[in-house]
């Protein structure tokens, strides 16, 4: 790999959220599981669907539940020729705001109908899934109302819905940025290059494009020594998801000679019980270099006297 290597990386952010529903949404989702649609009536007599816990006009609690639909009127719509991965229908369909019979507001959902039949004001009917779990997608979609409803497959579950799984996933392509890219290209040459602040003269490694203390751009590149001192450490003895090394191993702050900021890395080639503050170490490079800090496999002890605590106390 040379200087022209493209320093971009895919990145996925996922959260396995579960959400609690509260009493109003919970009852709405329970009604969907049971193959019915319920709205809520406000003190002023408006029927809201999908239900919310308060009247958006007044902030007052909503009153009783009212069954609405399953027939509805399309108020507006748009056509989806090529459905996205997260869309509820995977053939061409319409997203629409549909006003359910008996409701004073409209609800967003999918309408499955031929494109040429789509029109504002058209009558549609909710189509429920056979397997329902307590979700807005228990309504598979709406279809043109022919006056005949499909038989509902009954649901065995009777417990009210109080929570549900709501996993999220976002995908990114992250670029290293000019400052980090310059550092990572150095790593490909077995060099560790810091940056010096022109104002306070501190050397940052990994480099920062802007000095967090002074708020000015760092400008000067400083190739660093590859020997340093362990300023603090922790021995990892338990396994965890995503772990790369076999426990036990020591994670440590290593202050490279002449530098001002310690580098978080691993201390290896030594019994973890012998790792200590002030220990002198040097970088051990991997044979196959890649543009990440993992190209330094670990730091290993060298035969030099320990550095007294007084000299590293500002860098732990």
């Amino acid at each position: 790999m040379g200087a022209d290597v493209e320093l971009v990386s895919p990145f996925v952010l996922e959260y396995a959220y579960k959400r609690s529903t509260g009493p109003v949404i919970g009852r709405f989702l329970t009604s969907l599981r049971d193959g019915r649609i319920e709205g809520v009536r406000t003190a002023a007599g408006r029927v809201l669907c999908p239900p919310v816990e308060y009247d958006p006009d007044t902030g007052e609690d909503v009153q009783d539940f009212v069954e609405v639909g399953p027939c509805a009127t399309v108020l507006t719509w748009t056509w989806i020729d090529a459905p996205l991965r997260d869309h509820p229908v995977q053939v061409p369909f319409a997203f629409a705001l549909v006003q359910l019979e008996g409701a004073d507001t409209s609800m967003l959902h999918a309408v499955c109908a031929p494109r040429e039949d789509m029109a504002t004001g058209m009558r549609v009917r909710a189509v429920f899934r056979d397997e329902r779990v307590g979700s807005i997608t228990d309504i598979a979609h709406f279809e043109i109302d022919t006056g005949v409803s499909k038989d509902l497959v009954p649901n065995e579950a009777t417990e009210p819905i109080t929570r549900f799984k709501a996993p999220t996933r976002l995908e990114y392509v992250v670029a290293a940025g000019a400052t980090t890219a310059e550092f990572l290209r150095g790593v490909l040459r077995r060099e560790l290059i810091g940056r010096r602040c022109p104002s306070c003269e501190k050397i940052y490694l990994p480099p920062r494009g802007s000095c967090p203390t002074c708020g000015v751009r760092t400008t000067e590149l400083v190739p660093m020594a590859q020997k340093g001192t362990v300023t603090t450490f922790s021995v990892i003895r338990i396994p965890f998801e995503g772990q790369v090394l076999e426990p036990p191993y020591a994670a440590a702050h290593v202050l490279l000679d002449g530098g001002d900021t310690p580098l978080l890395h691993i201390v290896g080639d030594v019994d973890v019980d012998l790792v200590r503050m002030g220990m002198r170490v040097e970088a051990v490079w991997a044979e196959q270099l890649e543009p990440t800090l993992a190209s330094v496999r670990y730091f290993r002890p060298i035969d030099e006297p320990d550095v007294p605590y007084a000299e590293i106390r500002g860098h732990v």
Binding site: P50, L84, H87, L108, A110, S135, I136, T137
Partner: peptide, 14 residues
């Protein structure tokens, strides 16, 4: 997250 996000509706469609 209850009535809109599970439908995956994109901002352009909205």
């Amino acid at each position: 997250p209850y009535s809109l996000a599970p439908l995956g509706v994109d901002p352009h469609a909205m």
